[in-house]
């Protein structure tokens, strides 16, 4: 049996793959946070709750409306994203002129409300969401057995991440977003409806979180608190990558997943804290983050 530093190759690759899949979720979520932060300058503390809402919407949609996984993957981000847009329009906009700290507090409050309401309705214990039939089973790779659904999550998350990167960095709409991030007043003076752009951007960021939630539903127990623990790690990822860089958010998310996976192989006790250790190191050596612009 091939060994890597005293660990069987299959175990090594298996953990790496698990890490990469976690990393894909980190990437999706920190990407949404970065998009929202860029234009709104709000640290969206409701992001974890919105991810959870995505998973719940898929679960409830299946239970009560017979919506299957594939339809949920399409509909849930739209519905939850629209709900996010409404939230921006009706709530966040009212405090947009205040210090950005208020946005953080407000979204934190919203997260608690979403979580609390769902705990009230469904309790804390999670329900499980079935893996769609087409993605059940697994693929035998030369060095390991890869469950098909996990492979799919990785591919889907990467495609959405890169698609988002492409839209933002290479299209006209993305140019509006980048310019609006820099100088919204001038964008208005050019005739761009910046308030609408802000609403759509927030809605899009929320839709990314909801998409991640649907992807996660068959992997993890769907429970009201599933987002809050994840969000803490994602914030650490965002700090490491640096706020505001799209590609940085994606790459850092994947890299941190891998580092977590590797730590699980060689020193499992530290697996849950290694990202925070990296965060502290980055904060000391490069406070703006790996991809952030130094002030």
């Amino acid at each position: 049996m091939t060994m890597i530093f005293g660990v069987p190759l299959a175990v090594f690759m298996g953990q790496l793959m698990l890490g990469l899949i976690n990393g894909a979720f980190y990437a999706l979520l920190s990407l949404g946070l970065a998009v929202i932060f860029g234009l709104l300058k709000i640290v969206n503390f409701a992001h974890g709750a919105q991810y959870m809402l995505g998973a719940f919407a898929a679960l409830l949609g299946a239970q009560y409306l017979g919506i299957n996984y594939w339809l949920a993957l399409l509909l849930v981000p739209l519905v939850v994203g629209a709900f996010g847009a409404l939230l921006e329009r009706l709530v966040l906009r009212r405090i947009a002129h205040l210090d950005h700290l208020y946005g953080l507090l407000l979204t934190f409050g919203l997260a608690l409300i979403f979580e609390g309401s769902l705990i009230n309705l469904f309790g804390v214990s999670g329900a499980s969401y079935p893996i769609p039939e087409a993605l059940s089973g697994g693929i035998k790779l030369p060095f390991m057995f890869l469950p098909t659904y996990r492979g799919w999550v990785l591919v889907a998350a990467l495609v959405v991440c890169l698609g988002t990167w492409f839209i933002i960095e290479r299209t006209r709409l993305g140019a509006y977003l980048r310019a609006g991030t820099e100088n919204p007043a001038l964008m208005q003076a050019f005739g761009v409806n910046v308030p609408l752009l802000v609403t759509l951007t927030y809605g899009f960021g929320v839709a990314l979180a909801a998409f991640a939630g649907v992807l996660a539903a068959p992997l993890y127990p769907v429970s009201p608190t599933m987002g809050s623990s994840l969000l803490i790690v994602v914030f650490a990822v965002v700090v490491i990558g640096g706020m505001g860089s799209i590609l940085g958010a994606i790459l850092t998310g994947l890299a941190m997943g891998l580092i977590e996976g590797l730590t699980k192989v060689y020193y499992p006790e530290a697996a849950n804290t290694v990202i925070f250790l990296v965060m502290i190191m980055v904060l000391m050596l490069r406070p703006a983050g790996l991809f952030g612009k130094e002030a």
Binding site: A175, R178, A179, T181, E182, N183, L186, A189
Partner: peptide
């Protein structure tokens, strides 16, 4: 505008 307002990210 007076400060020209060229966008750095474009």
């Amino acid at each position: 505008p007076e400060e020209r307002g060229i966008f750095a990210s474009l």
